[in-house]
Amino acid sequence: MRARAIFVAQLTFTLLVAAFLIVPALQSMLAGVTANYFRGIRSGVTLQWVLQVWQLYADTILRSFVIAFATLGVTLVVGVPAAYGLHLRGDRLSRAVEEIITLPLAIPGLAIALALLLTYGGLGSFRRSWLFILVGHVVFTLPFMVRSVMAIFAATDVKTLDETAASLGASPLRRFRDVIVPYARPGILAGSLMVVTLLLGEFNLTWMLHTPLTKTLPVGLADSYASMRLEIASAYTLVFFVMIIPLLVAMQIFAGCRNEPAGPRR
């Protein structure tokens, strides 16, 4: 009786996931290769919409990746040392700093974007460059990097590892490179994956901050839904999936194999 109830619950869950996650995604991608959506798939299968999306938005797609990886770079360079510094200090001040950098998660992206515009909107060339979007993205994703790296530090006694490396003569920079970063790698990889995933889909902030020349993937998608045929918007989704999924899988595989420590297994 109990086993049966569990089976029913599992089945229900699977069906719900299928109904609301997988089927709509497939439906959307299918629409992108349908000649005429209102007549359905019988109207024929075509790649013309995909081609059109590529012609219209290739630079947007490219820019999206550039911004995402540039942001990842900044969060790594700033976030990993910051996480270590906060962990080592571990006092009231560092907890306050941690809270402050986490704050952007609780504030609507639109509000952050508005604040950035009010403060720095007057700096014309900065406002018009993609660096403006980069700043917004860093503000939004830094806490994810800091938190996932700090979680690794909190789990064990990384301070003693650092002190040991110091006793062996390693300078602070050297032991950060040789001991702390390798140790924090699982957290760094998890944080990186999270940052890239969030950024490629980020719409809120970017929608407010972008100019016609600094659109990203999701903003381009909104643009195509608003101004073009449904097939083109759907084809856009298809392109999005085709680019994102291999990227995420590649990052996962990369994370998996770099996690294997050196030396033969026994």
Binding site: D157, T160, L161, E163, T164, A165, A166, S167, L168, G169, A170, S171, P172, D178, V179, P182, Y183, R185, P261, A262, G263
Partner: peptide, 28 residues
């Protein structure tokens, strides 16, 4: 400490998990 030329062993040993035995011993 890094310029005092000391050798230190902690209770937890603090061996570097990203290095094998030989690399740990040779790190200094």
């Amino acid at each position: 400490i890094e310029r005092r030329n000391v050798g230190m062993v902690f209770q937890s040993y603090a061996l570097f998990p990203n290095m094998n035995v030989a690399d740990n011993i040779g790190y200094g």
